[in-house]
Nucleic acid binder design. Structure first.
Lengths: 338, 338
DNA sequence: CTGAAAGCGCTAACAC
DNA sequence: GTGTTAGCGCTTTCAG
């Protein structure tokens, strides 16, 4: 375990003062130093294998070159691509990403955020579903820039990158209508989540646009998970035996629906067409492969990071809310009704 | 943006010197300070909302309370549980986890590790599949403790937490043999990965134990992915039409096998039983639900973190290599041959 | 263009 | 038991 060389070691080797070495090493201030000294310092640094100490610099400049991202559940297949997109964009600029998991718990969320704030991250990307809207403001008041991803602030005061659920649900509905369906039900996600509520509203709006009834054809699942999806689907179809198609609020709900329909002896897509939402990894591998609506999660992460970088550079960010266009992925779980 | 209170602010408020405040705030040194001053300092800290500055502390103590974990691909469903296990165990001790992705690239791996080392992580958990064995030694020579997870160092010099693939493959084979199968094939993972090679060797050993032939009944897939698994399976069954069961090297290969068998009109499990490996999320939702071998990934992450914590505390760690026992998950993709 | 000096917030010898 | 002093490695005034 050899001690790493410090700036002073480099300065000595180049026969200059530490402050000169610092200026020569920093591209921003390099112009102030004569070319020959710059060359000498750079050579010495290379020779010694000098790597700056980020903590020391951070203490002095009050920046950490660190950004935090808070996700509700890293085991949900949506979030890794998002994280990686952000990571890639930030890495280019020399930032390191700190990832925080909240387990979907409000309390834990606040603890995770304050850990990140204590570590003096320069910026924060929030992908958590629910949050007292004060949290973002509190973080901002500490001088930390914030960007939301996959969720929206109620008052639109915080920049956000989100998928356009209205368009996405419209794509699923239009697809089913084009196939000839008119009795279409919806298995909705929890209305406490903006995604659950928003997609349900969009469903109603699009059915109305087509002049179709939604009466009693919406069933709410307690949570975006397989089992609640199955339960909601059972209730929905037993109440509405006339249905020929179901739009699920996300892929996990759709998988639950698939299971419930199988158990009830309803064949998909023969007796019932089914759409999901998100195009999760592996939903193309279930039987039948699921027709769903895909969002560019990786790109959303990238965009969130770029927005944050702009914010940290002090640039104004307009527009505040960026809605990304989803894409319909037609697979085998939808076909024309008999 | 109000400036955060510093230790000096707390000291002033409590009417003591900064060093006394520091001692009072640190549980380790608190005993040296009189109870009444401790109380006063604590009260002042609480009153002001004081949070210590980790960078300043780190600069002084040469510790960052930070641990790095390097994974080949966060989008592979195996790794998030591992990361979360580690995170949970480290969080309890006040450590924050830095996650690095390598995209399965050697070059990127080295870059990621050196970023982490430059950031002066106190310890490193390596879950990358392949590594010039020198890397761990290089990191250790910087005074950073290292633990491997889901992979083993060739010379056994670095502590490692791994699943016992020999036992796991044995469970799958025994299960098939008990069902009455005797013509069993193997779709193997790439032999450049320790997991690919190890499971293949285990397969041969267990078939030999049962007195069964493996001749020509092993087909190697180029990569642990669905498409290569499908290709390998096609080759395998066209060459060995007598097979009644296939052991796949992991779940992704098994999903590929499932697809290839479906395409070839071979029904699973009617005509062919199939086992996977890893018990990835959602493999219970494919049709038929996959019989597979599960490893406690989350626990592996926890154990890696605990081993690392012990190492960082300066405790010796024995045994160096911990092999975790897998569990067979019997689902619907296996049954007795016709 | 370069050196001197100060200081970011904290901890750890060393005194008293 | 508490205060004094020094310094972790770096950047940034301020002189010269």
């Amino acid at each position: 375990m050899i001690a790493r060389p410090t700036l002073i070691d480099v300065a000595k080797a180049a026969d200059v003062h530490a402050s000169t070495a610092s200026r020569a090493l920093n591209p921003e201030t390099r112009g102030v130093v004569s070319d020959t000294t710059v060359a000498r310092v750079l050579a010495a640094a290379k020779e010694l294998g000098y790597r700056p100490h980020p903590l020391a610099r951070g203490l002095r400049t009050d920046t950490t070159l660190t950004v935090g991202i808070v996700v509700p559940d890293l085991e949900n297949p949506l979030f890794p691509p998002l994280v990686r997109g952000a990571e890639a964009a930030l890495g280019v600029e020399g930032y390191t990403l700190l990832i925080g998991n909240t387990d979907n718990e409000q309390e834990h969320t606040e603890a995770v955020i304050s850990t990140l704030v204590d570590r003096r991250v320069d910026g924060l990307i929030l992908a958590t579903a629910e949050l007292g809207s004060g949290v973002a403001a509190a973080v901002q008041s500490e001088g930390i820039d914030v960007v939301l991803v996959n969720r929206e602030s109620t008052d639109g005061s915080v920049p956000a990158i989100i998928g356009d659920d209205h368009i996405g649900i419209g794509m699923a509905v239009d697809h089913l209508v084009e196939l000839g369906h008119s009795a279409i039900g919806h298995v909705a996600g929890p209305p406490v989540l903006s995604t659950g509520l928003g997609r349900c509203k969009a469903f109603k709006a699009h059915l109305a646009r087509h002049g179709l009834s939604v009466d009693g054809r919406i069933e709410v699942a307690d949570w975006f998970q397989v089992a609640p999806g199955a339960r909601a689907t059972s209730d929905l179809v037993s109440r509405n035996p006339e249905l020929t198609a179901i739009v699920a609020g996300n892929d996990l709900l759709a998988l639950g629906a698939l299971r419930a329909l199988n158990d009830a002896g309803v064949s998909v897509p023969g007796d019932m067409s089914l759409t999901g939402y998100n195009d999760m990894p592996f939903v193309d591998l279930v039987q039948p492969p699921l027709t769903t609506v895909g969002l560019p999660y990786r790109e959303m992460g990238t965009m969130a990071a770029q927005t944050l970088l702009a914010l940290m550079r002090g640039e104004g960010v307009e527009p505040h809310v960026t809605r990304l266009r989803p894409a319909l992925r037609v697979r085998a779980s939808t076909e024309s009704p008999r």
